[in-house]
Design a protein around this nucleic acid. Sequence first.
DNA 1: TACTTTTGTATCGCGAACGATATAAATAAC
DNA 2: GTTATTTATATCGTTCGCGATACAAAAGTA
Lengths: 151, 151
Amino acid sequence: MKEEFLLDNQLCFRLYTASRLLTQAYNPLLSAHGLTYPQYLVLLVLWENDAQPVNDIAKRLCLETNTVTPLVQRMEKQGIVTRAKGTNDARQMIVSLTDKGQQLQTALTDVPFAVGGAVACKSLTPETVPALFQTLDDMIAQLKKNLKRDT
Amino acid sequence: MKEEFLLDNQLCFRLYTASRLLTQAYNPLLSAHGLTYPQYLVLLVLWENDAQPVNDIAKRLCLETNTVTPLVQRMEKQGIVTRAKGTNDARQMIVSLTDKGQQLQTALTDVPFAVGGAVACKSLTPETVPALFQTLDDMIAQLKKNLKRDT
DNA sequence: TACTTTTGTATCGCGAACGATATAAATAAC
DNA sequence: GTTATTTATATCGTTCGCGATACAAAAGTA
């Protein structure tokens, strides 16, 4: 068995697992408000800057628009956001928070802390986290560059 | 805007994005052989230990059996694995590699190197990778424990 | 102005991922 | 030994995630 094929040597499997399990930690907290994790990410984006076209949301989340479109359509159905054609560019679909969408920020105040508690471990300290963020950001930037190249 | 809600402060979003982009780096290499990334993970597990029940594969990959079952059914349809009822325990469904499944290991020899090249960045060095693995493993163990607690 | 190309969304199809549920086989309890 | 419980898979329904495709609006070009 070649070393490179050992599951325990795989970076991707670790990221994949950590991502899924951490998302699962969010789930009970979010589903209590009828939200999924990707929908929560859209809310984070809109709370920072309301009224954005689908394309900007997708770019910010590194997702394709054909993932974001049905996602915000479901959020619209729940009354969390509204969708309206852009006035400058009629192709754009501007996604905006409703009052309910705004208020969710207050309702979800405890979520970051609760999730923080669920991941808390000795490897995650105020000293190690910045390096971890740096590494992940570096990887993400590199992957974006290399994936774009093949297009 | 509260700091905890800033997208750039989210560990989960980084993991989620890094995981998806890294999986995308695998995709062209795997789809050339008719494989998806989760199917590749199943192959990694079976290459280490052939002839395992669905449950063991799921546990190793931290997935639910209702994810693995249809996944291996698709692999069976492609002639990569066979499925057979266990002799000791008739409830178990033992998944085994076919010759084609075995040979894929040779055909995919270059995959780990190619993907390694796609992520290569200055934050990933022989000195930093062990710490990164340790952190991710630690997080995963912690999350498993906390998620199990709520069951 | 007419024509081509690009851009922004949307639709479709398929493979995950997972909660909820169903079913048969194995185990435990009595 | 019969009944109750647990265990191993499987099925169903919903939501991603993304490649492929469609289409209209905008931008570029002749």
